[in-house]
Nucleic acid binder design. Structure first.
Lengths: 336, 336
DNA sequence: GGTTATACTGGAACCGCTTCCAAACGCAGC
DNA sequence: GCTGCGTTTGGAAGCGGTTCCAGTATAACC
């Protein structure tokens, strides 16, 4: 059916070895021979079979990405950074979207053990020690992005500092009652950022001599609508918070909806800070903590490619800078 | 290094054929034999090599998706529908993001010709007759999503009807001066939706006896910021449009920013209609034409899987329904 | 001119599966 | 006990590349 390297070899009157050599740019081929082979390749419209190549090379020439909820803007941005670099390489990119813990476990197990990829990027999801052991055993390089494990290479941000940054900004504006809306601290995915940002939030409060009030911290499923609900609860408290720090921009938008629902003006009556700086943050004029999303993806792939080249590289932990972006949703608190 | 089917065969005291048979659920294996083999597989922690399997099967067990700008919410939603179904199948999903015409051409050429996938989904990008011919020749099934070609299976919406729907809604509210903001009608990607929606827009105007004023139609690169600029231009016209229909929700958000920039209230001074119904549309209270984004992806994969089973299927054209979603950005025009 | 190093080249072996064919086996029927 | 048939099995061939090794041709040197 399809034309193979044997067809090319026969047609060009050379051996398959020679064809393979011109295909792979091996310099030990006489120029005339190379020309002849190239001509036949063109003539027969020959395309080497990547599958056969992979079997022979004992490489999948594939990089996998396992990511949760890849419709979330923050994940998409990272994926984009990843795709851009993978496209320039010889590798294919296969994506695994996980929306349930079961699916996560299935991916963590089968993708590496099944030799489906030469390298793996895991976004946001935290692997267990068991997972890590299995990956090491399979000798498959893994890079974590926006999540961590002591034994694995990773590119992260300082979530504690991020929480601190956001909270301190509010404190400096004069706020004393600051709410925090986060994902579940204890959910089946074991995301850690909510917890870390909470830590930064608490630390900033403490530094300012402000008490941490547990009732000002709400947790729930991720999402705008859920955040809106939590914000409702928060804003019905007496005294209500004059500012809310949300774990993500998406959630911050939910907070702003809640404010609108209750007739509160932002920022006059309520200040809101988000996290990530997704595109909509700019639209909404949201003050937020920016993290370089696409850049984390790019750095992750760079690391991965390097690691696939030299698996003995010492465990790297790349920490990317974050930055407070002040827009129009934060202001001094209303007079009491 | 890795354990192969031969290791399993030897250890279990059977032939490789038998191991392969139990692996593939062939019923002609004595239950005791099956048990023994299964036990050895477990014991050796054997995972069959997908690569070898593919070579032998002469299938890549891979489905490709070529999509432009996959950070756009509308594309991401479709991808999500695709991923969900592919994950349930035996196939891997590899994604090709295209952001330039060159990359598109490279993907269109090499992905199929290079035998990298068993089936392909193309989102939004229009293939040329040449592309289609090459794909047919390679016997690779291709499904188009949100784009079309007479010779190819596709899942689409009626963009003309969509443009008509949006425009008629505005007309019924009493608007007489309605702007339309679209992507370039003639851009290197040959997207057709802008043109089709324009057609629907013009048709609705005509039906209402309203003239089509070319100066009320603006085109430019896709994007919120670009749409904002175009809306600025539109709103500085005299007389200015009292309503703007935008080719996408993202662009509609840009229009709303422009309105805010100029101190125009939405919907009192300006009505805005978008297209797609992405998540942000609901947040922004945007009146829009909803299309079932994730559903187009799902339908596409369904079609593709069926087609890979039976390549002789007659060319299918699935048209999914659209629907006007009225929210808070449309109202009767201001009194003159 | 003879030797030797070097540049090319052909082709067998191998990667790890599936599949097909032939052989072995088990059992019913006579 | 033998025949015939369906079930179960082993293993060789094949998928389409890469690579290594041995062999030939060419150039370089004495």
């Amino acid at each position: 059916m399809a034309v193979t390297i044997y067809d090319v070899a026969k047609q060009a009157g050379v051996g398959v070895g020679t064809v393979s050599r011109v295909l792979n740019g091996n310099p030990n081929v006489r120029p005339e021979t190379r020309q002849r082979v190239l001509a036949v390749i063109e003539e027969l419209n020959y395309h080497p079979s990547p599958i056969a190549r992979r079997l022979s090379l004992r490489k999948t020439l594939t990089i996998g990405v396992i990511a949760p909820f890849f419709t979330r803007p923050s994940i998409v941005e990272r994926l984009r950074g990843i795709e851009a670099l993978v496209a320039e390489s010889d590798y294919d990119l296969v994506v695994y979207n996980v929306e349930t813990p079961e699916r996560r476990d299935a991916c963590f197990r089968s993708v590496v053990a099944g030799h489906r990829v030469d390298g793996l990027i895991v976004i946001h999801l935290a692997p267990t020690d068991d997972d890590v052991r299995r990956w090491a055993q399979a000798q498959t390089p893994v890079i974590l992005v926006d999540t961590r494990h002591p034994a694995l290479h990773r590119v992260v941000i300082d979530d504690v500092a991020g929480g601190h940054l956001a909270t301190r900004h509010l404190i400096e504006l004069g706020h004393r009652r600051i709410g925090y809306i986060s994902d579940w601290l204890d959910e089946p995915f074991h995301f850690t950022s909510s917890r870390d940002r909470l830590l930064g939030y608490q630390r900033a409060l403490a530094e300012a001599g402000l008490p941490f009030r547990p009732e000002y911290h709400r947790q729930g499923d991720h999402g705008r609508e859920q955040a809106r609900q939590m914000a409702h609860d928060l804003l019905r408290l007496a005294p209500r918070p004059t500012a809310i720090f949300a774990h993500s921009d998406t959630q911050a938008l939910g907070v702003m909806q809640a404010a609108a629902d209750l007739g509160l003006r932002v920022p006059e009556d309520l200040s809101v800070v988000g996290f990530d700086d997704i595109e909509m943050a700019e639209y909404a004029g949201l003050t937020t903590v920016r993290q370089p999303l696409a850049e984390t993806g790019r750095k992750g792939i760079e690391l991965l490619l390097r690691l696939m080249d030299d698996p003995s590289l010492p465990t790297a932990c790349v920490e990317l800078p974050i930055e407070l972006v002040v827009r129009r949703t934060t202001a001094p608190p209303p007079n009491p």
